[in-house]
Amino acid sequence: MNWLGIWAIYRYEMTRFFRTLLQSFISPVISTSLYFVVFGAAIGSRIEQVEGVSYGAFIVPGLVMLSVVMQAVSNASFGIYFPKFIGTIYELLSAPVNFLEVVTGYVGAAATKALFIGVVILGTASLFVDLTIQHPLAMVAFLLLTCTSFALLGFILGIWAKNFEQLQLVPMLIITPLIFLGGSFYSISMLPPAWQTITLFNPVVYLISGFRWAFFGMSDVPVGLSLLAIAGFTALCIGIVWWIFRTGWRIRP
């Protein structure tokens, strides 16, 4: 393993993040506060409790997931797309690093950034609502797995994208709707039966449900299934990334 190579990529990517640390910190704080003002105070005051949890607290896991997933995807996709766009990818291709090392560096950095944002949002949320985390270890595990798997998805997206429009298309048209419809702001049980069945095809449901279980001990789908789903998704992404490097798809003709 070229550990120094991995470290170089990771560090380089993190430097970019630290250059804009203030924006990275302020924007999730503001957006989370807005969500709490709108959903928590304005709308939440009309919804008393969801399965025994105050609505304000109920939306916290969904809010964290929403930001973490978006950040992981956008950081990782931009991280690998940018060198492709400006041509500096030549250096990665001509360096003595293999696919695992490149992915570990890029995805590790993107996941770290997403994790940072997740922690900031949790901190901000705790200023608005009383938060108790019933299964802290499981919470951390879900958070780490989500950061990693969606950073992998972002990496694939960055390799696939041929321009900036494509780079933004998938997060906007696919990922955001999946998260909003994945039970970030409501419980699946609030939906009519037909929609409950349809919703189960949305992979994000398993993610948010599992994460919410770690907080409140309640979930829309069994927590084991959530874990299995996210592990399966991670494995699928790793498989695709491995195939990309093996065939050189869109990076090495």
Partner: peptide
Amino acid sequence: FEKVINTVRFSRGLFG
């Protein structure tokens, strides 16, 4: 946006 010295250090690290 990267500094000259950082980009050169990065290359060295990338090559292990």
